[in-house]
Amino acid sequence: KLATQLLVDLAEGCHTHHFNSLLDIIEKVMARSLSPPPELEERDVAAYSASLEDVKTAVLGLLVILQTKLYTLPASHATRVYEMLVSHIQLHYKHSYTLPIASSIRLQAFDFLLLLRADSLHRLGLPNKDGVVRFSPYCVCDYMEPERGSEKKTSGPLSPPTGPPGPAPAGPAVRLGSVPYSLLFRVLLQCLKQESDWKVLKLVLGRLPESLRYKVLIFTSPCSVDQLCSALCSMLSGPKTLERLRGAPEGFSRTDLHLAVVPVLTALISYHNYLDKTKQREMVYCLEQGLIHRCASQCVVALSICSVEMPDIIIKALPVLVVKLTHISATASMAVPLLEFLSTLARLPHLYRNFAAEQYASVFAISLPYTNPSKFNQYIVCLAHHVIAMWFIRCRLPFRKDFVPFITKGLRSNVLLSFDDTPEKDSFRARSTSLNERPKSLRIARPPKQGLNNSPPVKEFKESSAAEAFRCRSISVSEHVVRSRIQTSLTSASLGSADENSVAQADDSLKN
């Protein structure tokens, strides 16, 4: 292990032709098999893994070397290190390495390699500790012929580059190093199909959405987006994914797998022009299946994007999809995704031109529960009313008269009656009930004795009459309010007539 670390330190600071010789020695160290011998017992696995620490030291050392060589000349050094790393990870899946030390190597290698970024000039870069990406002036992410390196360097940008540029090249004859992302992409596909350690798979799935944002990485080298989509959909639809995973937390289920895969599918929607129609349908189907899991909100957001990006695919699945959405409970976490999906859909009339009455009724059935102001915040309630109004205007004229009683009944049950079921009123009724029952229970537990009763009969009569009056008032709060309003209006009217009579009498006395 110490000798391997010494080789790594020497290679990191070497800029001459001896660098390749040092890498040859490190490569021989990495070539050791990580498969346990067949006769190895389970209690000896930890000791055997400790004997392979030099392999881990070599791989982690290459990660440090690549981070240094990416910004220094010659660029061919970075290319050689990158290829060695990718080849080593491929061996893991070729020979099915399952030892804990092998999983640790893959975890740290993917953690580093999935941080690679590219700008519009195809320059590769890595983020620093502050998250700012520094791009290399010597390494690009696409394949290029050595003699055409300078031509590639002087080509115009596709868009303004992001991030601070690296140091300027030493001279005009500098050759750019090619670090094609397709090599890593193929290893990522192998990981999605064969990885057995949940920690490694979770890391890859968590980092892929951010990497897919940099389309330069994908399009400048032959990366098959179709295969990526197929691998992701197979993970969700195939039963073998959960069987092969180990190291998963207790209670791990298909729902947890959906939570990890759906963000990658959402990021892949922007590549729909490069996906086969069959793959697009598979993607939409997987998102529909996710509606029954805890990732339902993410799936609804993804389907909203699909309705804009892939209208030809979503239009066929939309009638059944809208009916499925009615089975989702009206909760605060689902309110905004569902209502925004319906609001977006209302502005795309070509998608729902074939809707029948059942689909329009489903839209109103989804939106009406969110009009309850005692359960949802003001934004959700306003958005629900907006969706109902928009869809009522957009639905066909023959359907409107049939939906009017349905909508008014839903609004009455969710908006008007919600004020009668407020917690304050319920607590008031509970308190009044307890007050009504309390005197009775006290009389049963403690019967009054005439000799020891010091309270006069008049006081008892007053208290009983007050309790009886309170019971009468607490029967119905709404009736009490109505009666008080009527009494107030009658009182004001009587006072007004009394004032008029007094004024008339005063005038008569003055005349006399």
Rank of each mutant, 00 (worst) to 15 (best):
S49I: 07
S49P: 03
A50D: 11
A50P: 03
A50T: 13
A50R: 08
S51I: 05
L52W: 04
L52A: 07
E53W: 03
D54G: 02
D54K: 00
V55I: 06
K56I: 03
K56H: 08
T57D: 05
T57G: 05
A58R: 00
A58L: 00
A58D: 01
V59N: 02
V59M: 04
V59E: 01
L60P: 01
L60N: 15
L60H: 14
L62A: 07
L62N: 02
L63A: 09
L63V: 07
L63H: 06
I65F: 02
I65Q: 01
I65V: 08
L66C: 03
T68P: 01
L70E: 01
L70I: 08
Y71Q: 04
T72V: 13
T72K: 08
T72H: 14
T72L: 10
L73K: 11
L73G: 15
P74Y: 03
P74Q: 03
A75H: 07
S76K: 09
H77G: 03
H77Y: 04
H77M: 05
A78R: 01
A78S: 06
A78V: 08
A78L: 02
A78Q: 01
T79K: 10
T79Q: 14
T79A: 07
R80F: 02
R80L: 03
R80Q: 04
V81H: 00
V81T: 06
V81C: 08
Y82P: 02
Y82K: 00
E83C: 11
E83F: 06
M84N: 03
M84T: 06
L85Y: 00
L85N: 00
L85P: 00
L85D: 01
L85H: 00
V86Q: 01
V86I: 07
S87T: 12
S87D: 13
S87Y: 07
H88E: 01
Q90V: 08
L91P: 00
L91N: 11
L91C: 14
L91F: 08
L91K: 11
H92S: 01
H92D: 00
Y93I: 00
Y93H: 00
K94L: 07
K94A: 13
K94T: 12
K94G: 05
K94Y: 13
H95R: 12
H95G: 07
S96F: 10
S96P: 06
Y97E: 01
Y97S: 02
Y97G: 01
T98V: 08
L99Q: 04
P100H: 04
I101E: 02
I101P: 03
I101C: 06
I101G: 02
A102D: 01
A102N: 00
S103C: 08
S104P: 02
S104K: 11
S104I: 08
S104L: 11
I105F: 01
I105M: 04
I105V: 05
R106E: 00
R106M: 01
R106D: 00
R106G: 00
L115K: 13
R117V: 03
R117D: 01
R117H: 03
A118N: 03
A118D: 01
S120D: 07
S120H: 09
S120F: 09
S120Q: 08
S120I: 10
L121S: 09
H122R: 05
H122K: 05
H122Y: 03
H122C: 04
L124R: 02
L124H: 02
G125N: 01
G125W: 02
L126V: 09
L126C: 10
L126P: 00
L126I: 13
P127H: 04
N128Q: 09
K129E: 15
D130L: 07
D130E: 09
D130M: 08
G131D: 04
V132C: 09
V132T: 10
V133E: 04
V133M: 14
R134I: 07
S136F: 01
S136V: 01
S136N: 01
P137Q: 09
P137Y: 04
P137V: 03
Y138T: 08
Y138H: 07
Y138F: 15
C139Q: 07
C139V: 12
V140Y: 08
V140E: 02
C141H: 02
C141Q: 02
C141Y: 02
C141K: 02
C141G: 02
D142Y: 04
D142N: 05
D142T: 09
D142L: 03
Y143Q: 10
Y143I: 12
E145C: 07
E147L: 07
G149M: 10
G149D: 14
E151Q: 10
E151F: 12
E151S: 10
K152Y: 12
K152E: 13
K152W: 14
K153L: 13
K153Y: 12
S155G: 12
S155Y: 11
S155W: 11
P157G: 13
P157H: 11
P160S: 13
P161A: 11
P161I: 14
T162Q: 13
G163L: 11
G163E: 10
P164Y: 13
P164D: 14
P165Q: 09
P165F: 09
G166L: 13
G166W: 10
G166V: 13
G166D: 14
P167L: 14
A173F: 10
A173T: 11
A173W: 11
R175S: 11
L176I: 13
G177Y: 07
G177K: 05
G177W: 05
S178G: 13
V179D: 02
P180M: 03
P180H: 04
P180G: 03
Y181L: 04
Y181Q: 02
S182W: 04
S182L: 03
S182D: 04
S182K: 03
L183M: 13
L184T: 08
F185W: 08
F185Y: 06
F185T: 03
F185N: 02
R186S: 13
L188P: 00
L188H: 00
L188W: 02
L189T: 06
L189G: 02
L189Q: 03
L189W: 02
Q190A: 08
Q190C: 09
Q190G: 05
C191F: 01
C191W: 00
L192P: 00
L192E: 00
L192F: 04
L192Q: 00
K193N: 09
Q194K: 10
Q194A: 10
E195Y: 00
E195F: 00
S196I: 10
S196V: 09
D197H: 04
D197G: 00
W198N: 00
W198H: 02
W198L: 03
K199E: 14
K199L: 10
K199N: 09
K199F: 07
V200C: 04
V200M: 01
L201V: 05
L201N: 00
K202P: 01
K202M: 06
K202Y: 03
K202Q: 10
L203T: 12
L203K: 08
L203Q: 12
V204K: 00
V204E: 00
L205W: 00
L205R: 00
G206Q: 11
R207V: 04
L208Q: 01
L208R: 00
E210M: 09
E210H: 10
E210T: 10
S211L: 14
S211E: 03
L212Q: 00
L212N: 00
R213C: 05
R213Y: 05
Y214Q: 09
Y214R: 04
Y214W: 08
K215N: 04
K215L: 02
L217W: 04
L217N: 04
L217D: 02
I218W: 10
I218M: 09
I218D: 02
F219E: 10
F219G: 06
T220E: 03
S221G: 03
S221Q: 03
S221M: 02
P222Y: 04
P222I: 02
P222L: 02
P222C: 04
C223K: 03
C223P: 02
C223D: 04
S224E: 06
S224P: 08
S224G: 05
D226K: 05
Q227P: 02
Q227M: 11
Q227E: 12
S230L: 05
S230E: 12
A231E: 12
A231V: 09
L232F: 01
C233Y: 05
S234F: 05
S234Y: 07
S234I: 06
M235Y: 03
L236I: 07
L236T: 05
L236D: 01
S237F: 07
S237T: 13
S237N: 09
S237L: 12
G238D: 14
G238P: 03
P239W: 08
P239L: 06
P239T: 11
K240Q: 13
K240D: 14
K240N: 14
K240A: 13
T241P: 09
T241S: 05
L242Y: 09
L242F: 11
L242D: 03
L242I: 10
L242W: 12
E243R: 08
E243V: 06
E243G: 07
R244D: 04
R244A: 04
R244H: 05
R244C: 04
R246V: 09
R246S: 09
R246N: 08
A248D: 04
A248P: 06
A248F: 11
P249I: 04
P249N: 14
E250D: 10
G251N: 09
F252Y: 04
F252S: 02
